[in-house]
Nucleic acid binder design. Sequence first.
DNA 1: CTGCGATCTGGAGCGCGCTCCAGGTCAAGC
DNA 2: GCTTGACCTGGAGCGCGCTCCAGATCGCAG
Lengths: 129, 129
Amino acid sequence: MTTYTPAEAARLSGFSIDTLRYYEREGILSPVARTAGGRRRYSEEDIGRLGFLRCLRDTGMPIAQLRRYGELSLDGSTVPERVALLEEHEAVVAAAIEELHAQRARLREKLAWYRAEMAADERPAVPSR
Amino acid sequence: MTTYTPAEAARLSGFSIDTLRYYEREGILSPVARTAGGRRRYSEEDIGRLGFLRCLRDTGMPIAQLRRYGELSLDGSTVPERVALLEEHEAVVAAAIEELHAQRARLREKLAWYRAEMAADERPAVPSR
DNA sequence: CTGCGATCTGGAGCGCGCTCCAGGTCAAGC
DNA sequence: GCTTGACCTGGAGCGCGCTCCAGATCGCAG
């Protein structure tokens, strides 16, 4: 079965090696398998989990909730709780998208106004024909 | 002309009083008028500026850029620079929206998968007719 | 005039999410 | 066997964006 070194896991997940260790310490990612000498070997599943964690982080889920999700994932009977957590998060993401849309519209209005300003300044007093 | 106390400015803008002072110190908001005794009196224009600053912050513009924008706003001849700054930021916001959409789709896939899991668990082995 | 709540200043402190460091260990290549 | 570089641990440090504090002052209501 394929495994990955910390460096590979970092490259594949987009997290830094330090962050991977930090997540493991924090219980966000369950303990990773080790070689006889104590080096980490990330499994395919670990990589998959990391990919999903990246999705959650990219959508702004705070570390505390990531940890909660990590803890729930240790117990197979917690699927409903996990679903609830993710549904709640999905709503937060939806709201964030809405908010960004609205503020972007405002930003564009301001830009339109500035452009009008610039056009007016360029052509003062008497229009050049 | 209408003016506003710090408490009113805070309520209207959604920033805390401390944040208002902080923004002024940082040069993000140009110096606010004072009473004879030294208390701030925010003008309508100040409130307007704060509203736009809120838009910028809500779309994730970092403090350093807010400061740059504040500095540019002191000089009337910098409209093109301000437009450039805002255009750049608009692109960042657009990218953020895209990213959120993509990650949200991923989140939904995961949820769909979990729901399928739950449905399967609920109805084991022999279907109840 | 008095009381008292709002505001003032300069500066320290905080919460989040990493990031870096020292000092040591492991393991692949020569 | 030795070198070299990736990796280990525990813990300190950092950058951002505020937030809080002490101690003083202002100014309106009564």
